[in-house]
Design a binder for these strands. Structure first.
Lengths: 230, 230
DNA sequence: TGTCGACAGTTTGTGTGCAAAAAGGCTGAC
DNA sequence: GTCAGCCTTTTTGCACACAAACTGTCGACA
């Protein structure tokens, strides 16, 4: 068959593709992932598909029901408070770390991500904004230089992409501009090496985001809302 | 063949067994894990072995070199400072959370784990002490009720099991008794719901452990030490 | 009419074969 | 004696086949 595909790339490409589709909500939570159907879609056998699903399961993005099928993991609203708590903590920890480990080269990446973010806001592109915001904070985490923080934080932010997509389908431009300014303030504080200020700004920034999501949720709850996950 | 094995248990049992062997250092970092050899050892085909290795790779416990073999992940001493930082943070976060979410049933589990820990210290069993200490803090994290904290912290503590095994091969009984007392103090602070005290105790407890490991490392460095991982 | 059991269909879990890729050894030339 | 190139060996990545397990449906019986 197609031996054009590089040897180790099968699993990788399936993993990346499905992961992206899950995070962008192209695959809704609860969607069944059939191994045969996926293998047909990607034009390869079940084995690499299976291995990709295994990796996604390890990431917590899909849930495999033993001897049954695999589904896209549901977003559990009951754990949202825990999520916000963990997210806030990691906002603070990574931003503090960044203020302590300044590095010109990595700092430039932070600036670049902030430019992307500003552009997304100006374009009023809600989805691009979500991605850019994530990338901005990942860049800060990498600047902080603690790999444990970076991987955990990245995981949290990715889960957040799904939550945000749920509520950002319609774009409201009141708050985003404020986010741009907060990002600028955080950058300035990092460059000044002011750890305490970073901590305060990160705390406030996290609270801002949490507040906004909670507003969206509260608004949704006033409308009839289909909570059935599957 | 042996159809006696339950259908879904193959991968699971291989995963659990190898994971345990890695965490207890029965499999040294850098040890090669050959799929064929493992499949012979466990009396099954390569497929379930392969899936188990994939899960271990997702946990970061093994590293798979593409198109080559997979090896037990090395312990990277360069990242130890980051590790200690993350560990300390999670000690604090989970203990604080525990003080806020008190629960009689889960609290009893904490007491039980502390009894195990005390017994391990009295028995002068270094390895049992390592396991019991991990379980004690996991129990506190579960008491805290934040699943994100629990999973990240558990992962850190498991990685710590390997590091501690490196340095606890000979048991020194100066500090352990102090750990017992510190654990007791933490339990009391949780039961009193004193968040700030929990934070201080967790910080000090973490610093204690970090200091001890660093002492071990410093002592080792004074001797000729083979740093070659493989 | 409601409930239980058997059957068929679907989907996963595992076994097996083959080919690609990398490592190490061998041979030959310089 | 050393180094380059080829070949062999080892091990993985993927394809495919088969059987177990679960779901849903249909029919029989109370």
């Amino acid at each position: 068959m197609e031996s054009s595909r590089a040897r180790g790339s099968g699993t990788q490409s399936v993993y990346k593709t499905i992961r992206q589709e899950i995070l962008t909500m192209a695959l809704a939570p609860g969607s069944p992932l059939d191994e045969v159907r996926l293998s047909e879609r990607f034009g390869m056998s079940r084995t690499p598909v299976r291995e990709a699903l295994l990796r996604l399961a390890a990431d917590g993005l899909v849930t495999t029901l033993p001897n049954r099928n695999t589904v896209v993991s549901a977003i559990d609203f009951a754990t949202l408070p825990s999520y916000f708590e963990a997210l806030s903590l990691m906002y603070r920890a990574t931003t503090r770390a960044a203020a302590m480990h300044r590095d010109a080269k990595l700092m430039e990446k932070v600036h670049a991500r902030q430019r992307d973010f500003r552009k997304a806001v100006e374009d009023r592109d809600a989805f691009a904004m979500i991605e850019a915001n994530r990338d901005f904070h990942v860049a800060i985490a990498e600047l902080g230089g603690n790999g444990y923080y970076t991987s955990f934080f990245t995981r949290l932010l990715d889960e957040g992409r799904r939550i945000l997509r749920l509520y950002y389908s319609t774009f409201e431009d009141r708050l985003p501009r404020q986010y741009v300014e907060e990002h600028e303030a955080i950058i300035a504080a990092i460059e000044a090496g002011d750890v305490d200020l970073c901590d305060r700004l990160a705390t406030e920034h996290a609270a801002q985001i949490v507040r906004q999501i909670q507003d969206y949720i509260a608004r949704d709850l006033r409308q009839p809302m289909d909570l059935a996950e599957r």
